[in-house]
């Protein structure tokens, strides 16, 4: 085994052929109680690179659970277990014994439902991911902070107060800061777990606009309760119900003419 390099340059990461999916989930079953009951059952889907993929479904359908499987955030739960199947990201089985979750998470970033900047300065929030990788060079950090804030469409609003507390920002700004913090480590994939559920419509629109822009550099997987949001931001949509993947297709099709009745009932707001 070679030493893992500290820098996370996307170019350095193994690249995938353009037609190959960046995430391939194959017959995945997942349990929160050591396999007694499966929260996710036999999920198979392939997520294309450079696209926005939305996971929709009623509460408790497993969409957030699946999202958290993708960067192994479920490792935090002692009794969580992948019971069958595998998840390959960039061609590598991420649950293989020689995969380090910490390294995986540098390639697969995550933005959370409740914006959660650290009670530090704006600058330190964005630099956090690089600092934990041991980067101390002020020049590199400065550049990364500016770049990430630019990309997160926040630079103009905060460039004069990088040293003030992140908690002084508005909710929408805090969430964009969290996005900046996530993309500062240059992940290949950005997972978003209901990123707008705590935001007002204007802030939501800003984030959605940002997602459209980030799509150029990152593969985005977004969990959302807001179906209009899924139609607005995503290229492909997966509909989950009771831990199973019901339908996965182009967003246009899922919301225009889904082939499975359950999907149609859910997206058009009928009794399920």
């Amino acid at each position: 085994m070679t030493e893992t390099s500290v820098t996370t340059d996307p170019a350095a990461a193994p690249s995938v052929a353009s037609n190959e999916p960046i995430i391939a989930i194959d017959d995945l079953s997942f349990s929160y109680d050591l396999g007694k009951t499966n929260t996710l059952r036999n999920i198979s889907l392939e997520i294309p690179a450079g696209k926005v993929t939305a996971f929709i479904g009623p509460s408790g359908c497993g969409k957030s659970t699946l999202l958290r499987c993708l960067n192994r955030m479920n490792d935090l739960v002692d009794t969580a277990k992948v019971t069958t199947g595998r998840i390959s990201i960039l061609g590598q089985d991420i649950n293989a014994p020689d995969v380090e979750a910490i390294e995986l998470r540098k390639h697969v970033g995550m933005v959370f439902q409740k914006y959660n900047p650290f009670p530090k300065s704006i600058y330190e929030n964005v630099a956090y991911g690089l600092r934990v990788q041991g980067i101390k060079n002020k020049g590199i950090l400065d550049q990364a902070v500016e770049e990430s804030l630019q990309k997160a469409a926040l630079w103009g609003e905060v460039k004069d107060r990088l040293d003030s507390s992140a908690l002084g920002l508005s909710g929408g700004q805090q969430q964009r800061l969290c996005i900046a913090r996530t993309i500062a480590v240059k992940p290949r994939i950005v997972l978003m777990d209901e990123p707008c559920s705590a935001l007002d419509p204007i802030a939501t629109a800003r984030i959605e606009e940002l997602i459209a822009e980030l799509q150029e550099d990152f593969t985005i997987v977004i969990v959302t309760h807001n179906m209009q949001q899924a139609t607005r931001v995503s290229d492909r949509t997966a509909f989950f119900y009771l831990g199973e993947l019901i339908e996965y297709d182009e967003t246009q099709i899922i919301f225009g003419n889904p082939s499975i009745k359950q999907t149609e009932d859910y997206v058009s707001g009928r009794f399920g």
């Binding site: 179906m227 209009q228 139609t231 919301f255 225009g256 003419n257 889904p258 149609e264 997206v267 058009s268 707001g269």
Partner: peptide, 10 residues
């Protein structure tokens, strides 16, 4: 008011 989708929209 209802943002219809799928068959409702059609």
């Amino acid at each position: 008011r209802f943002n219809p989708v799928a068959s409702d929209l059609r």
